[in-house]
Design a protein around this nucleic acid. Structure first.
Lengths: 225, 225
DNA sequence: TCTTCTATCAGTAGTATTTTCATTTGACCT
DNA sequence: AGGTCAAATGAAAATACTACTGATAGAAGA
Protein backbone atom coordinates (compact mmCIF):
# COMPACT_ATOMS: atom_id res chain seq x y z
CA UNK A 1 0.00 0.00 0.00
CA UNK A 2 1.45 3.27 -1.17
CA UNK A 3 0.88 6.52 0.62
CA UNK A 4 1.77 10.07 -0.28
CA UNK A 5 2.48 12.37 2.61
CA UNK A 6 2.26 16.08 1.86
CA UNK A 7 3.83 17.91 4.73
CA UNK A 8 6.47 20.61 5.03
CA UNK A 9 7.77 20.22 8.57
CA UNK A 10 10.68 17.79 8.61
CA UNK A 11 10.10 16.58 12.15
CA UNK A 12 6.46 15.88 11.49
CA UNK A 13 7.29 14.00 8.32
CA UNK A 14 9.89 11.90 10.05
CA UNK A 15 7.61 10.77 12.81
CA UNK A 16 4.67 10.03 10.52
CA UNK A 17 6.80 8.11 8.05
CA UNK A 18 8.26 6.04 10.84
CA UNK A 19 4.92 5.09 12.19
CA UNK A 20 3.46 4.24 8.79
CA UNK A 21 6.45 2.18 7.76
CA UNK A 22 6.11 0.22 10.94
CA UNK A 23 2.71 -0.73 9.63
CA UNK A 24 4.34 -1.77 6.35
CA UNK A 25 3.08 1.05 4.23
CA UNK A 26 5.25 2.38 1.44
CA UNK A 27 5.51 6.10 2.08
CA UNK A 28 6.54 8.82 -0.31
CA UNK A 29 6.64 12.49 0.51
CA UNK A 30 6.13 15.87 -1.05
CA UNK A 31 7.24 19.04 0.70
CA UNK A 32 5.05 21.46 -1.15
CA UNK A 33 2.05 21.55 -3.43
CA UNK A 34 3.95 21.72 -6.64
CA UNK A 35 5.89 18.57 -5.88
CA UNK A 36 2.73 16.97 -4.56
CA UNK A 37 0.87 17.64 -7.76
CA UNK A 38 3.73 16.24 -9.82
CA UNK A 39 3.67 13.01 -7.88
CA UNK A 40 -0.07 12.65 -7.85
CA UNK A 41 -0.32 13.08 -11.56
CA UNK A 42 2.40 10.59 -12.35
CA UNK A 43 1.92 7.93 -9.71
CA UNK A 44 -0.93 6.13 -8.11
CA UNK A 45 -1.42 6.19 -4.36
CA UNK A 46 -3.73 4.25 -2.13
CA UNK A 47 -4.03 7.16 0.22
CA UNK A 48 -2.93 10.77 0.36
CA UNK A 49 -2.18 12.51 3.64
CA UNK A 50 -2.52 16.23 3.16
CA UNK A 51 -1.43 18.98 5.48
CA UNK A 52 -3.49 21.95 4.29
CA UNK A 53 -1.27 24.50 5.97
CA UNK A 54 1.68 24.65 3.63
CA UNK A 55 3.77 27.44 2.16
CA UNK A 56 2.75 27.79 -1.45
CA UNK A 57 -1.01 27.68 -1.36
CA UNK A 58 -3.87 26.14 0.51
CA UNK A 59 -4.32 22.42 0.36
CA UNK A 60 -7.98 22.99 -0.29
CA UNK A 61 -7.25 24.05 -3.86
CA UNK A 62 -5.24 20.88 -4.38
CA UNK A 63 -8.20 18.96 -3.07
CA UNK A 64 -10.34 20.79 -5.54
CA UNK A 65 -8.08 19.77 -8.41
CA UNK A 66 -8.11 16.21 -7.21
CA UNK A 67 -11.86 16.15 -7.33
CA UNK A 68 -11.77 17.10 -10.99
CA UNK A 69 -9.61 14.13 -11.85
CA UNK A 70 -11.31 11.06 -13.22
CA UNK A 71 -9.65 8.78 -10.77
CA UNK A 72 -10.94 9.15 -7.25
CA UNK A 73 -8.28 9.41 -4.59
CA UNK A 74 -8.48 8.71 -0.88
CA UNK A 75 -7.44 11.78 1.06
CA UNK A 76 -7.01 12.40 4.76
CA UNK A 77 -6.50 15.97 5.79
CA UNK A 78 -4.17 16.72 8.65
CA UNK A 79 -4.15 20.22 9.97
CA UNK A 80 -3.50 22.43 12.92
CA UNK A 81 -6.56 24.41 12.03
CA UNK A 82 -9.22 22.77 14.05
CA UNK A 83 -12.06 24.97 13.05
CA UNK A 84 -15.28 23.28 12.13
CA UNK A 85 -15.33 25.45 9.06
CA UNK A 86 -12.18 23.96 7.57
CA UNK A 87 -13.28 20.48 8.40
CA UNK A 88 -16.54 20.98 6.60
CA UNK A 89 -14.83 22.58 3.62
CA UNK A 90 -12.36 19.74 3.38
CA UNK A 91 -14.90 17.01 3.57
CA UNK A 92 -17.09 18.80 1.07
CA UNK A 93 -14.21 18.89 -1.34
CA UNK A 94 -14.05 15.15 -1.19
CA UNK A 95 -11.62 14.36 1.59
CA UNK A 96 -12.31 11.06 3.25
CA UNK A 97 -11.30 12.04 6.74
CA UNK A 98 -10.00 14.89 8.79
CA UNK A 99 -7.49 14.78 11.60
CA UNK A 100 -6.58 17.75 13.77
CA UNK A 101 -3.06 18.29 15.06
CA UNK A 102 -1.93 17.21 17.49
CA UNK A 103 -3.01 13.63 17.05
CA UNK A 104 -1.92 10.24 18.19
CA UNK A 105 0.09 8.33 15.63
CA UNK A 106 -1.98 5.26 16.40
CA UNK A 107 -5.03 7.22 15.43
CA UNK A 108 -3.46 8.27 12.15
CA UNK A 109 -2.54 4.76 11.12
CA UNK A 110 -5.96 3.52 12.16
CA UNK A 111 -7.65 6.11 9.97
CA UNK A 112 -5.36 5.37 7.06
CA UNK A 113 -6.21 1.71 7.28
CA UNK A 114 -9.86 2.43 7.56
CA UNK A 115 -9.88 4.77 4.58
CA UNK A 116 -7.95 2.33 2.43
CA UNK A 117 -10.21 -0.47 3.46
CA UNK A 118 -13.29 1.54 2.65
CA UNK A 119 -12.00 2.65 -0.73
CA UNK A 120 -10.01 -0.19 -2.12
CA UNK A 121 -11.18 -3.26 -0.30
CA UNK A 122 -14.88 -2.53 -0.05
CA UNK A 123 -14.81 -2.62 3.67
CA UNK A 124 -13.15 -5.95 4.16
CA UNK A 125 -9.80 -6.30 5.79
CA UNK A 126 -9.72 -9.95 4.79
CA UNK A 127 -9.88 -10.97 1.16
CA UNK A 128 -10.86 -14.53 0.33
CA UNK A 129 -9.95 -15.86 -3.06
CA UNK A 130 -10.17 -19.54 -3.90
CA UNK A 131 -8.56 -21.39 -1.02
CA UNK A 132 -6.48 -18.39 -0.02
CA UNK A 133 -7.34 -15.77 2.53
CA UNK A 134 -5.41 -12.59 2.93
CA UNK A 135 -5.61 -10.38 5.97
CA UNK A 136 -4.70 -6.90 4.85
CA UNK A 137 -4.52 -5.54 8.39
CA UNK A 138 -2.32 -8.15 9.95
CA UNK A 139 -0.42 -8.92 6.79
CA UNK A 140 -0.98 -12.62 7.06
CA UNK A 141 -1.99 -15.21 4.52
CA UNK A 142 -3.71 -18.53 5.02
CA UNK A 143 -4.10 -21.33 2.53
CA UNK A 144 -6.67 -23.93 3.48
CA UNK A 145 -6.50 -22.59 7.02
CA UNK A 146 -2.80 -23.22 7.18
CA UNK A 147 -0.70 -20.10 7.70
CA UNK A 148 1.61 -19.17 4.87
CA UNK A 149 4.50 -16.92 5.78
CA UNK A 150 5.34 -14.36 3.16
CA UNK A 151 7.85 -11.65 3.63
CA UNK A 152 7.05 -8.01 3.06
CA UNK A 153 7.53 -7.71 -0.68
CA UNK A 154 5.91 -11.03 -1.38
CA UNK A 155 2.88 -10.00 0.62
CA UNK A 156 2.68 -6.63 -1.08
CA UNK A 157 2.86 -8.22 -4.48
CA UNK A 158 0.29 -10.85 -3.68
CA UNK A 159 -2.18 -8.34 -2.30
CA UNK A 160 -1.70 -6.10 -5.31
CA UNK A 161 -2.36 -9.00 -7.61
CA UNK A 162 -5.33 -10.18 -5.62
CA UNK A 163 -7.01 -6.82 -5.65
CA UNK A 164 -6.45 -6.75 -9.40
CA UNK A 165 -7.24 -10.37 -10.13
CA UNK A 166 -7.50 -11.44 -13.75
CA UNK A 167 -6.31 -8.06 -14.83
CA UNK A 168 -3.07 -7.45 -16.67
CA UNK A 169 -0.49 -5.68 -14.56
CA UNK A 170 2.43 -4.27 -16.42
CA UNK A 171 5.82 -4.31 -14.83
CA UNK A 172 6.22 -0.57 -14.63
CA UNK A 173 3.01 -0.27 -12.65
CA UNK A 174 3.99 -3.14 -10.44
CA UNK A 175 7.43 -1.70 -9.74
CA UNK A 176 5.96 1.69 -9.00
CA UNK A 177 3.35 0.32 -6.67
CA UNK A 178 5.53 -2.05 -4.72
CA UNK A 179 8.91 -0.40 -4.85
CA UNK A 180 7.94 3.25 -5.12
CA UNK A 181 9.65 6.01 -7.00
CA UNK A 182 13.24 4.90 -6.56
CA UNK A 183 12.80 2.86 -9.71
CA UNK A 184 12.05 5.96 -11.76
CA UNK A 185 13.88 5.69 -15.02
CA UNK A 186 15.09 2.16 -14.73
CA UNK A 187 13.94 -0.38 -17.22
CA UNK A 188 15.59 -3.29 -15.54
CA UNK A 189 13.11 -5.47 -13.76
CA UNK A 190 15.39 -8.15 -12.37
CA UNK A 191 14.24 -7.37 -8.85
CA UNK A 192 10.70 -8.23 -9.83
CA UNK A 193 11.68 -11.61 -11.19
CA UNK A 194 13.21 -12.83 -8.01
CA UNK A 195 10.25 -11.82 -5.88
CA UNK A 196 7.79 -13.34 -8.33
CA UNK A 197 9.81 -16.50 -8.35
CA UNK A 198 9.78 -16.85 -4.58
CA UNK A 199 6.12 -15.96 -4.32
CA UNK A 200 5.17 -18.50 -6.96
CA UNK A 201 7.11 -21.17 -5.18
CA UNK A 202 5.45 -20.47 -1.87
CA UNK A 203 1.99 -20.40 -3.43
CA UNK A 204 2.61 -23.65 -5.18
CA UNK A 205 4.15 -25.42 -2.19
CA UNK A 206 1.24 -24.41 -0.01
CA UNK A 207 -1.28 -25.72 -2.52
CA UNK A 208 -2.86 -22.35 -3.27
CA UNK A 209 -5.21 -22.29 -6.25
CA UNK A 210 -3.73 -19.07 -7.49
CA UNK A 211 -1.32 -18.67 -10.32
CA UNK A 212 0.71 -15.69 -11.40
CA UNK A 213 0.99 -15.88 -15.14
CA UNK A 214 3.46 -13.97 -17.24
CA UNK A 215 2.07 -12.19 -20.27
CA UNK A 216 4.95 -12.01 -22.68
CA UNK A 217 6.18 -8.51 -23.31
CA UNK A 218 3.46 -6.96 -21.19
CA UNK A 219 3.46 -8.00 -17.59
CA UNK A 220 1.66 -10.39 -15.26
CA UNK A 221 -1.81 -11.51 -14.48
CA UNK A 222 -3.23 -13.39 -11.51
CA UNK A 223 -5.47 -16.14 -12.76
CA UNK A 224 -7.89 -17.91 -10.51
CA UNK A 225 -7.98 -21.23 -12.30
CA UNK B 1 12.56 8.23 -36.82
CA UNK B 2 16.18 8.94 -37.58
CA UNK B 3 18.35 11.19 -35.50
CA UNK B 4 21.85 12.49 -36.00
CA UNK B 5 23.83 13.11 -32.84
CA UNK B 6 26.80 15.41 -33.22
CA UNK B 7 28.88 15.08 -30.09
CA UNK B 8 32.54 14.43 -29.42
CA UNK B 9 32.57 13.01 -25.90
CA UNK B 10 32.27 9.26 -26.02
CA UNK B 11 30.55 8.88 -22.67
CA UNK B 12 27.99 11.52 -23.49
CA UNK B 13 27.28 9.88 -26.82
CA UNK B 14 26.86 6.51 -25.23
CA UNK B 15 24.33 7.64 -22.70
CA UNK B 16 22.32 9.71 -25.16
CA UNK B 17 22.23 6.98 -27.75
CA UNK B 18 21.07 4.49 -25.16
CA UNK B 19 18.24 6.67 -24.02
CA UNK B 20 17.09 7.51 -27.53
CA UNK B 21 17.22 3.94 -28.71
CA UNK B 22 15.11 2.97 -25.77
CA UNK B 23 12.52 5.29 -27.27
CA UNK B 24 12.93 3.48 -30.55
CA UNK B 25 14.73 6.19 -32.43
CA UNK B 26 17.33 5.23 -34.96
CA UNK B 27 20.46 7.10 -33.92
CA UNK B 28 23.54 7.87 -35.97
CA UNK B 29 26.50 9.82 -34.77
CA UNK B 30 29.14 12.22 -35.99
CA UNK B 31 32.17 13.02 -33.88
CA UNK B 32 33.11 16.29 -35.54
CA UNK B 33 31.76 18.88 -37.89
CA UNK B 34 33.28 17.48 -40.98
CA UNK B 35 31.70 14.09 -40.49
CA UNK B 36 28.49 15.78 -39.45
CA UNK B 37 28.32 17.77 -42.63
CA UNK B 38 29.00 14.70 -44.71
CA UNK B 39 26.13 12.85 -43.13
CA UNK B 40 23.72 15.73 -43.25
CA UNK B 41 24.29 16.30 -46.93
CA UNK B 42 23.90 12.66 -47.88
CA UNK B 43 21.20 11.44 -45.54
CA UNK B 44 17.94 12.69 -44.26
CA UNK B 45 17.33 13.05 -40.55
CA UNK B 46 14.19 13.79 -38.61
CA UNK B 47 16.14 15.62 -35.99
CA UNK B 48 19.71 16.73 -35.42
CA UNK B 49 21.21 17.00 -31.96
CA UNK B 50 24.08 19.42 -32.07
CA UNK B 51 26.70 20.02 -29.43
CA UNK B 52 28.07 23.44 -30.36
CA UNK B 53 31.24 23.02 -28.35
CA UNK B 54 33.27 20.74 -30.56
CA UNK B 55 36.86 20.62 -31.68
CA UNK B 56 36.98 21.81 -35.24
CA UNK B 57 34.74 24.84 -35.24
CA UNK B 58 31.67 26.25 -33.63
CA UNK B 59 28.42 24.52 -34.22
CA UNK B 60 26.89 27.87 -34.93
CA UNK B 61 28.54 27.97 -38.33
CA UNK B 62 27.14 24.56 -39.12
CA UNK B 63 23.77 25.85 -38.12
CA UNK B 64 24.31 28.73 -40.46
CA UNK B 65 25.08 26.38 -43.34
CA UNK B 66 22.02 24.35 -42.53
CA UNK B 67 19.89 27.42 -42.76
CA UNK B 68 21.06 27.97 -46.32
CA UNK B 69 19.92 24.55 -47.42
CA UNK B 70 16.63 24.22 -49.17
CA UNK B 71 15.42 21.53 -46.88
CA UNK B 72 14.66 22.71 -43.38
CA UNK B 73 16.08 20.57 -40.64
CA UNK B 74 14.99 20.20 -37.05
CA UNK B 75 17.89 21.01 -34.78
CA UNK B 76 18.24 20.87 -31.03
CA UNK B 77 21.35 22.44 -29.60
CA UNK B 78 22.93 20.84 -26.59
CA UNK B 79 25.65 22.77 -24.90
CA UNK B 80 27.55 23.37 -21.72
CA UNK B 81 27.47 27.05 -22.48
CA UNK B 82 24.38 28.21 -20.76
CA UNK B 83 24.74 31.85 -21.64
CA UNK B 84 21.65 33.62 -22.81
CA UNK B 85 23.72 35.01 -25.65
CA UNK B 86 24.47 31.59 -27.15
CA UNK B 87 20.93 30.51 -26.72
CA UNK B 88 19.65 33.52 -28.57
CA UNK B 89 22.24 33.12 -31.34
CA UNK B 90 21.35 29.50 -31.75
CA UNK B 91 17.66 30.06 -31.91
CA UNK B 92 18.15 32.94 -34.31
CA UNK B 93 20.09 30.70 -36.62
CA UNK B 94 17.12 28.43 -36.85
CA UNK B 95 17.59 25.90 -34.07
CA UNK B 96 14.32 24.54 -32.81
CA UNK B 97 15.32 24.15 -29.22
CA UNK B 98 18.17 24.62 -26.83
CA UNK B 99 19.16 22.37 -23.96
CA UNK B 100 21.87 23.22 -21.46
CA UNK B 101 24.12 20.56 -20.01
CA UNK B 102 23.65 18.90 -17.70
CA UNK B 103 20.16 17.80 -18.53
CA UNK B 104 17.89 14.93 -17.73
CA UNK B 105 17.75 12.32 -20.43
CA UNK B 106 14.00 12.24 -20.04
CA UNK B 107 13.96 15.91 -20.91
CA UNK B 108 16.06 15.35 -23.99
CA UNK B 109 13.82 12.65 -25.38
CA UNK B 110 10.77 14.75 -24.58
CA UNK B 111 12.19 17.69 -26.54
CA UNK B 112 13.18 15.48 -29.45
CA UNK B 113 9.69 14.12 -29.63
CA UNK B 114 8.18 17.54 -29.39
CA UNK B 115 10.40 18.98 -32.12
CA UNK B 116 9.70 16.11 -34.45
CA UNK B 117 6.02 16.41 -33.77
CA UNK B 118 6.06 20.11 -34.44
CA UNK B 119 7.94 19.77 -37.70
CA UNK B 120 6.51 16.70 -39.27
CA UNK B 121 3.04 16.43 -37.94
CA UNK B 122 2.02 20.00 -37.28
CA UNK B 123 1.36 19.45 -33.63
CA UNK B 124 -0.24 16.05 -33.36
CA UNK B 125 1.39 12.94 -32.06
CA UNK B 126 -1.45 10.99 -33.61
CA UNK B 127 -1.86 10.82 -37.35
CA UNK B 128 -5.28 9.91 -38.68
CA UNK B 129 -5.49 8.64 -42.22
CA UNK B 130 -8.61 7.00 -43.57
CA UNK B 131 -9.70 4.53 -40.93
CA UNK B 132 -6.22 4.20 -39.49
CA UNK B 133 -4.78 6.15 -36.60
CA UNK B 134 -1.13 6.07 -35.73
CA UNK B 135 0.21 7.21 -32.39
CA UNK B 136 3.79 8.27 -32.97
CA UNK B 137 4.54 8.59 -29.26
CA UNK B 138 3.23 5.30 -28.06
CA UNK B 139 4.07 3.42 -31.23
CA UNK B 140 0.58 2.03 -31.53
CA UNK B 141 -1.78 1.72 -34.45
CA UNK B 142 -5.55 1.49 -34.47
CA UNK B 143 -7.81 0.53 -37.34
CA UNK B 144 -11.45 1.36 -36.79
CA UNK B 145 -10.67 1.68 -33.09
CA UNK B 146 -9.30 -1.83 -32.97
CA UNK B 147 -5.67 -2.06 -31.98
CA UNK B 148 -3.35 -3.41 -34.64
CA UNK B 149 -0.12 -4.83 -33.35
CA UNK B 150 2.83 -4.11 -35.56
CA UNK B 151 6.35 -4.94 -34.65
CA UNK B 152 9.10 -2.37 -34.68
CA UNK B 153 10.12 -2.39 -38.33
CA UNK B 154 6.57 -2.63 -39.55
CA UNK B 155 5.62 0.36 -37.47
CA UNK B 156 8.59 2.36 -38.66
CA UNK B 157 7.77 1.63 -42.26
CA UNK B 158 4.12 2.43 -41.90
CA UNK B 159 4.77 5.74 -40.21
CA UNK B 160 7.29 6.67 -42.87
CA UNK B 161 4.79 5.90 -45.57
CA UNK B 162 2.00 7.72 -43.83
CA UNK B 163 4.00 10.90 -43.41
CA UNK B 164 4.80 10.68 -47.13
CA UNK B 165 1.43 9.54 -48.36
CA UNK B 166 0.82 9.47 -52.12
CA UNK B 167 4.46 10.25 -52.67
CA UNK B 168 6.85 7.90 -54.35
CA UNK B 169 9.42 6.46 -51.99
CA UNK B 170 12.37 4.81 -53.55
CA UNK B 171 13.87 1.80 -51.92
CA UNK B 172 17.22 3.34 -51.17
CA UNK B 173 15.57 6.12 -49.22
CA UNK B 174 13.35 3.65 -47.44
CA UNK B 175 16.27 1.43 -46.51
CA UNK B 176 18.26 4.38 -45.30
CA UNK B 177 15.46 5.74 -43.23
CA UNK B 178 14.37 2.52 -41.61
CA UNK B 179 17.56 0.52 -41.45
CA UNK B 180 20.13 3.28 -41.19
CA UNK B 181 23.47 3.49 -42.84
CA UNK B 182 24.55 -0.08 -42.36
CA UNK B 183 22.95 -0.82 -45.70
CA UNK B 184 25.12 1.74 -47.46
CA UNK B 185 26.22 0.32 -50.75
CA UNK B 186 24.02 -2.69 -50.85
CA UNK B 187 21.58 -3.07 -53.69
CA UNK B 188 19.84 -6.07 -52.28
CA UNK B 189 16.45 -5.22 -50.92
CA UNK B 190 15.20 -8.61 -49.89
CA UNK B 191 14.80 -7.41 -46.33
CA UNK B 192 12.42 -4.74 -47.51
CA UNK B 193 10.23 -7.17 -49.40
CA UNK B 194 9.71 -9.27 -46.33
CA UNK B 195 8.66 -6.41 -44.15
CA UNK B 196 6.42 -4.92 -46.82
CA UNK B 197 4.75 -8.25 -47.25
CA UNK B 198 4.00 -8.66 -43.57
CA UNK B 199 2.84 -5.10 -43.20
CA UNK B 200 0.53 -5.41 -46.17
CA UNK B 201 -0.97 -8.56 -44.77
CA UNK B 202 -1.64 -6.98 -41.41
CA UNK B 203 -3.15 -3.89 -42.99
CA UNK B 204 -5.39 -5.98 -45.18
CA UNK B 205 -6.46 -8.35 -42.43
CA UNK B 206 -7.38 -5.47 -40.16
CA UNK B 207 -9.47 -3.85 -42.88
CA UNK B 208 -7.36 -0.73 -43.20
CA UNK B 209 -8.14 1.50 -46.18
CA UNK B 210 -4.47 1.94 -46.95
CA UNK B 211 -2.53 0.22 -49.64
CA UNK B 212 1.16 0.09 -50.25
CA UNK B 213 1.63 -0.03 -53.99
CA UNK B 214 4.79 -1.04 -55.74
CA UNK B 215 5.95 1.25 -58.50
CA UNK B 216 7.88 -0.91 -60.87
CA UNK B 217 11.56 -0.11 -60.91
CA UNK B 218 11.21 2.88 -58.65
CA UNK B 219 9.89 2.08 -55.24
CA UNK B 220 6.64 2.23 -53.30
CA UNK B 221 3.80 4.57 -52.75
CA UNK B 222 1.11 4.63 -50.11
CA UNK B 223 -2.23 5.21 -51.77
CA UNK B 224 -5.29 6.26 -49.84
CA UNK B 225 -7.92 4.77 -52.14
C1' DT C 1 25.89 -10.86 16.61
C1' DC C 2 23.05 -14.04 13.76
C1' DT C 3 19.23 -14.49 10.92
C1' DT C 4 16.20 -13.13 7.46
C1' DC C 5 15.09 -10.49 3.57
C1' DT C 6 16.14 -8.23 -0.76
C1' DA C 7 18.65 -7.09 -4.90
C1' DT C 8 21.78 -8.49 -8.29
C1' DC C 9 24.47 -11.58 -11.27
C1' DA C 10 25.37 -14.98 -14.75
C1' DG C 11 23.58 -18.40 -17.27
C1' DT C 12 19.63 -20.56 -19.75
C1' DA C 13 15.17 -21.44 -21.76
C1' DG C 14 11.46 -19.69 -24.25
C1' DT C 15 9.37 -16.54 -27.50
C1' DA C 16 9.18 -12.98 -30.95
C1' DT C 17 11.29 -10.42 -34.55
C1' DT C 18 14.13 -9.85 -38.49
C1' DT C 19 16.84 -11.54 -42.26
C1' DT C 20 17.95 -14.88 -45.64
C1' DC C 21 16.97 -18.36 -49.05
C1' DA C 22 14.75 -20.59 -52.88
C1' DT C 23 11.18 -20.15 -55.73
C1' DT C 24 7.24 -18.10 -58.07
C1' DT C 25 4.67 -14.34 -59.98
C1' DG C 26 4.20 -10.32 -62.55
C1' DA C 27 5.65 -6.05 -65.22
C1' DC C 28 8.08 -4.09 -68.96
C1' DC C 29 10.29 -4.08 -73.37
C1' DT C 30 11.40 -5.49 -78.12
C1' DA D 1 5.41 -14.21 -77.29
C1' DG D 2 9.65 -14.69 -74.81
C1' DG D 3 13.48 -12.78 -72.29
C1' DT D 4 14.73 -10.18 -68.44
C1' DC D 5 14.55 -8.17 -64.27
C1' DA D 6 11.61 -6.45 -60.26
C1' DA D 7 8.69 -7.80 -56.85
C1' DA D 8 6.26 -11.12 -53.96
C1' DT D 9 5.94 -15.31 -51.36
C1' DG D 10 6.47 -19.19 -47.76
C1' DA D 11 9.51 -21.17 -45.02
C1' DA D 12 13.77 -21.64 -42.63
C1' DA D 13 17.59 -19.66 -40.25
C1' DA D 14 19.60 -16.20 -37.56
C1' DT D 15 19.19 -12.73 -34.23
C1' DA D 16 17.35 -10.22 -30.54
C1' DC D 17 14.20 -9.97 -26.60
C1' DT D 18 11.95 -11.44 -22.48
C1' DA D 19 11.36 -14.21 -18.59
C1' DC D 20 13.11 -17.51 -15.40
C1' DT D 21 16.40 -19.77 -12.26
C1' DG D 22 19.94 -20.78 -8.63
C1' DA D 23 23.44 -18.79 -6.29
C1' DT D 24 25.26 -15.13 -3.75
C1' DA D 25 26.41 -10.82 -1.60
C1' DG D 26 24.75 -6.93 0.66
C1' DA D 27 21.14 -4.69 3.64
C1' DA D 28 17.91 -4.76 7.18
C1' DG D 29 16.08 -6.54 11.27
C1' DA D 30 15.95 -9.31 15.63
Amino acid sequence: MKILLIEDEAEMRKVIIESLEKERFLVETAHDFHAAWDKISTYDYDCILLDIMLPGGSGLSLLDELKKMKKQKSVIIISAKNSVDDKVKGLNLGADDYLAKPFHLAELTARVKSVIRRRTLEGHAVIELKNVSIDMDNHTVHVQNQPLTLNRKEFDILSYFVSNKNRLINKTALAEHIWGDHTDQSDDFEFIYSQIKNLRKKLKDSGADLEIQAVYGLGYKLVTD
